[in-house]
């Protein structure tokens, strides 16, 4: 384990979610689950971010925003699609204004299904993401 996975800073973006998954994300940040134990900090700023948590099925309005935020995160970065809507579009998949999942806009590394996702599942997903973050960082070092 290197420093990359000891200090994952997250950015949370709601791409037209119903707020169910967002509440669970915030629940995971409360003292009960205390994710700061793992060095996790919720930043509001892509420039400081390592792990990008996206909820919701992404509609026409926030496609651009999602793409912008993703582009502003410096490498290495991992995207986690939180909840079934973010993973595949969920029940909104066929709506006229829904793209159908985060991966239709930006590459996604970890899918955490659930409606809404449970904090335990979320933490599990982030721990998976940490592994991917390590791999990406190792790949980055090699490229140098």
């Amino acid at each position: 384990m290197t420093s990359a996975s000891k200090s994952p800073w997250i950015l949370h973006y709601n791409a037209s979610s119903c707020n169910g998954c967002d509440i669970e994300i915030l629940a995971a940040l409360t003292p009960v689950y205390d994710v700061e134990r793992f060095g996790i900090i919720n930043t509001g700023n892509p420039a400081h971010t390592d792990i990008f948590l996206v909820t919701g099925g992404v509609n026409e309005q926030n496609k651009v925003v999602l793409k912008n935020l993703y582009d502003q995160i410096p490498e290495p970065k991992v995207v986690v699609a939180v909840g079934i809507c973010a993973s595949s579009g969920g029940v909104f998949r066929d709506c006229y204004n829904i793209s159908g999942g985060v991966d239709t806009i930006i590459p996604v590394d970890v899918y955490v299904p659930g409606c809404s996702v449970r904090p335990e599942a979320l933490i599990e997903g982030i721990v998976k993401a940490l592994g991917i973050l390590e791999q990406k960082r190792a790949a980055m070092e090699e490229r140098k």
Partner: peptide
């Protein structure tokens, strides 16, 4: 004080080490 466990005491060093290896942007 907030009845949490909190990060390891060396956490600030982990943070800085991580930031040091991020992409230049």
């Amino acid at each position: 004080m907030q009845s949490r466990v909190g990060p390891p005491i060396l956490q600030p060093f982990y943070d800085v080490a991580k930031l040091w290896h991020k992409e230049k942007a």
